[in-house]
Design a binder for these strands. Sequence first.
DNA 1: CGACTTCTTGAGGAGACTCAAGGGTGGTGG
DNA 2: CCACCACCCTTGAGTCTCCTCAAGAAGTCG
Lengths: 244, 244
Amino acid sequence: MSELSPTARLTAFGSLSDQEMALLKDLAGPTCRFSRGDAIITEGAATSRCYLLLDGWTASTITLPSGARQMLKVHMPGDLLGTPSLAYGYSAETVTAFSDVTVAALALAPFGRMFEEAPRLAAMLFLISQEERVLLMDRIAAMGRSTAKERLATVFLQLRARVIRSDPDGGDSFRVPLTQIDLADLAGITSVHVSRVLQQLRDDGLVDWTRGVVTIIDLRRLAELSGLPLRVAQVERSWLPAAR
Amino acid sequence: MSELSPTARLTAFGSLSDQEMALLKDLAGPTCRFSRGDAIITEGAATSRCYLLLDGWTASTITLPSGARQMLKVHMPGDLLGTPSLAYGYSAETVTAFSDVTVAALALAPFGRMFEEAPRLAAMLFLISQEERVLLMDRIAAMGRSTAKERLATVFLQLRARVIRSDPDGGDSFRVPLTQIDLADLAGITSVHVSRVLQQLRDDGLVDWTRGVVTIIDLRRLAELSGLPLRVAQVERSWLPAAR
DNA sequence: CGACTTCTTGAGGAGACTCAAGGGTGGTGG
DNA sequence: CCACCACCCTTGAGTCTCCTCAAGAAGTCG
């Protein structure tokens, strides 16, 4: 949830504002580190905590019995990892580090206390979850009803939206530590086809992609291609509980 | 969130237990009714409330500029409608009535109060949202990485899981007020192809579908085909705030 | 500099789509 | 009570998108 007040930089750390991060880190245990490729959460493992991502990128994936991998989301600092699985006894997703990452573990007990002692923060986390749901809903619409080219457009737009959240002044060219294989896993197509479709997007003057650097060339037309609105989280905050 | 205690029938009303429903209905305004086909929430409209579905079935969909429709979820009594859009100023989805339905409107102010005055209920709603996220994540995995037959299997399994929630003794044959067009919109394929694939599922002895009556014939093999685990929400409730 | 991963490009094939026509089924009104 | 209409479902034929398999080029890291 970005703080949309004029005091802009509260968005600096991504989904959670600095205030909220601080509160959460109070609740959280000591931080720990992972290296590129490490699994932070493993599909099927018992859920005893979630994590607050402090530094680095991670991704959550589901692996089907066939071995096929579907990537669900790319996480950036400020995102919570593993919350969906709180509703189940085991984890539904695997969360892997894309780079060296730092996370803070959030045990269940403090998480529960938060609902009693910090209702405003709880409401914020609720809203963040709703935002995540909309993100997933958009992905479903894209995957169910559009071509590979359109899906990739959606992937780039969602990445852009999230990156801008963390770095509002970053412009429309940014590094993402993903390979075309990862893009394929995100879009639900093969990496071979990603390569071909990227060519088309380049030729059409919409996006450029060079070894992990994305450049959004024509945002308007890219959004048009994607078919989904450029969503801007914008909460009617008047109804939130007062800060304590 | 089903109440998994031995006092079984708390699940009777679907996602929310009777207790929780009662609390929520306290917060809610008067009920209102809609007829089959009515739009309860319209994509793009300003979000000023959400709804608690009391009776009947609804579905939420996203419509792309091309006119293609992707169905995101089928709702049954006890489900909350329109919460994802709380994170945005406008609604991301259209919610339509499948039959005559009754809903209770939940304005934002009481919703906010709930976080202060009923932290346990707030935590439950949080968990329900997490459950919905996992549902969406599974759909994405299905849509990104499996064939039409496998996707339809997933659709049937998710419908079954939700129906059983409301009616634990209902068995594996149940009415769903959907057409093959709706199934197609759910699975992200065309209705023509749904017809063909249903034949195969019948021939394989997995599922039968006759004018809105589903019969799960071989649950185990259907789940195997789908490739996704049969998830059972099962919360570690020890960490939830105490009821007030 | 060699081993590995990633990216590109080609050829052939399969799954799902489009277009189209025909048969059921249920509801409505004459 | 029957005729008509609207919608739903089925089936066929042809097409296109995307996949698979494969081989080679390019970039990366020890």
